[in-house]
């Protein structure tokens, strides 16, 4: 029975993973894993896949063993011993699929952001495009501000403009500064690239409220000590904890 179950790991795993994908789409949580541009395609192919699963269940009628032998296809599969590789991969597949079912979706943590932040450049932005931003500055995301900071470090540009955005915290090279960070996803969480703005808050490591998702409002000022993020830092006026959003990534 185990041998048969392990040999069916492919069709069973595709059926369950398609079901998980469709359930995530139904709950509006596919954004934890892939860019929304793929939602329609994922759902469409999921429906096709389930259709194939049903056809395979109802209509599959493999040739009898003697037909297989007569047809030169070798011994029937169930007489073949299960290899160690099949057993091992079957166990890994089973555990992975089980976790895909039971574990709630979660956004990438600050550990991955720290792994990637020091090396992923901020999105390119030219000074010419600053003029394109005519919306209320309070509605800009961390990514928008990160772009602005790449485009200009002129303190007069930021005077009177209020920053108000959410993100998670990762540490910077300066103990008095943390990086308010969001992931930007191009295709799926695998390519998630963190973008950050530096927040000046001495002793932030000792504040128990500064973990998970937070919303920060404040204004940019010239830093006393410029860091590898530039010469400007956000000086917070208010910081409050927030629930993780349903769409944790920026697209």
């Amino acid at each position: 029975m185990w041998a048969k179950a392990i040999r069916l790991r492919g069709p069973v795993s595709i059926a369950i993973l398609i079901t998980v994908s469709l359930a995530l789409a139904w709950e509006g949580k596919l954004g934890f894993f892939i860019h929304p541009r793929y939602n329609f395609f994922t759902v469409s192919m999921g429906v096709v896949g389930l259709g194939l699963v049903l056809i395979a269940t109802i209509k599959r009628n493999p040739p009898h063993d003697h037909d297989r032998v007569a047809a030169g296809m070798g011994l029937p599969k169930r007489t073949r011993r299960l290899s160690i590789w099949e057993g091992l991969s079957g166990a890994v597949v089973a555990v992975f699929v089980l976790l895909a079912v039971v574990l709630p979706p979660a956004a990438l943590t600050s550990a991955t952001a720290e792994n990637r932040s020091a090396t992923v450049p901020a999105p390119p932005e030219s000074e010419d495009s600053i003029g394109d931003i005519s919306v209320a500055f309070e509605s800009l995301t961390v990514r928008d501000w990160a772009r602005l900071l790449v485009a200009t470090q002129d303190p007069s540009f930021y005077r009177g403009k209020t920053f108000n955005a959410e993100g998670s915290i990762i540490k910077s090279t300066d103990p008095d500064v943390f990086l308010l960070t969001r992931f930007v996803v191009t295709c799926c969480a695998v390519d998630a690239a963190p973008v950050s703005v530096p927040v000046f808050l001495p002793g932030w490591q000792n504040d128990p409220l500064l973990e998970g998702w937070i919303r920060v409002s404040g204004e940019f000022h010239t830093a006393e000590q410029p860091g590898d993020w530039g010469a400007l830092v956000l000086v917070p006026r208010e910081i409050r904890q927030e629930e993780a959003p349903d769409a944790p990534y920026l697209f």
């Binding site: 995530l24 894993f33 892939i34 992975f96 976790l99 895909a100 979660a106 969480a189 695998v190």
Partner: peptide, 10 residues
């Protein structure tokens, strides 16, 4: 797990 499942769902 999130990275692996993301690759898989994609």
């Amino acid at each position: 797990f999130t990275l692996s499942l993301s690759l898989l769902i994609e």
